[in-house]
């Protein structure tokens, strides 16, 4: 129903993109990436969905991430819902989200049941600190890889967001409210100019930018 190799295939993709075979496979793949997600699932989602399975290209992944981050709720869960829906509708959304949550929930509740101050153990604390340092690197590398999808002038928006939220620690909502609407308006105006030129009747040029 959705996302077949039809006329909607995004520009720049010639061969039909690989797709998950079934909601069950979606569940398994999301389980797998969630269970490896120590200190954050996002780097794994990028590696598995984009680099290993090639179910999404980087642009499509960035798009899901953008919507997932700007809508309320956990980013990666939002991403799973949208990715799942893309291939199998609501069944896919539930399969991806279920895969993401089922295994880790069991593990975290088992840990909570066993919990007896082991997180206070100095060796455990230090091990966690080492793991968190690496996890931060994985997230940073994911951001750098995704940045490669953007035109340089659009990266300025990302840089401003990083300065505001990351360096200055301003509240996310303010930064998004300040940067989001102008960025979308600029994109809108830019697209309008681009459409205005070659789309005018009679200008020919093979209708390059036309859909």
């Amino acid at each position: 129903m959705t996302g077949g190799p039809d006329a909607k295939a995004p520009d720049g993709i010639d061969a039909p993109a690989p797709q998950p075979a079934s909601p069950a496979q979606l569940f398994r793949v999301f389980s797998g990436l969630a269970l490896r997600g120590f200190g954050g699932v996002l780097p794994w989602a990028q590696r598995v969905l984009v680099e290993e399975r090639r179910w999404l290209n980087r642009d499509q992944f960035v798009e899901l991430l953008a919507f997932g981050q700007l809508l309320p709720g956990p980013n990666i869960c939002n991403l799973a819902i949208m990715a799942g829906d893309r291939w199998f509708g609501w069944r896919g959304a539930l399969a991806a989200l279920g895969g993401l949550l089922a295994g880790p929930t069991a593990i975290v509740l088992a840990l909570a049941a066993l919990y007896a101050g082991f997180a206070e153990e100095p060796a455990v604390r230090r091990a966690l600190a080492g793991m968190a340092a690496v996890a931060a690197g994985l997230i940073a590398a994911t951001a750098l890889k995704l940045a490669a999808t953007q035109a340089p002038r659009w990266l300025a928006v990302g840089l401003l967001a990083f300065v505001g939220v990351g360096l200055l620690r301003w509240p996310l909502a303010w930064v998004v409210a300040a940067l989001g609407p102008p960025a979308v308006a600029l994109a809108w105006a830019g697209a309008r100019r681009a459409r205005g030129r070659p789309a005018a009747p009679g200008t020919g040029r093979g209708g390059g930018a036309a859909r």
Binding site: G68, T149, Q150, A156, V157, L159, A161, G166, V184
Partner: peptide, 17 residues
Amino acid sequence: RTGLSPLAIGLTGSAAW
């Protein structure tokens, strides 16, 4: 899509930071 994608990347970088 065009306007919000770079914002999302900046926020991901912020999360790492």
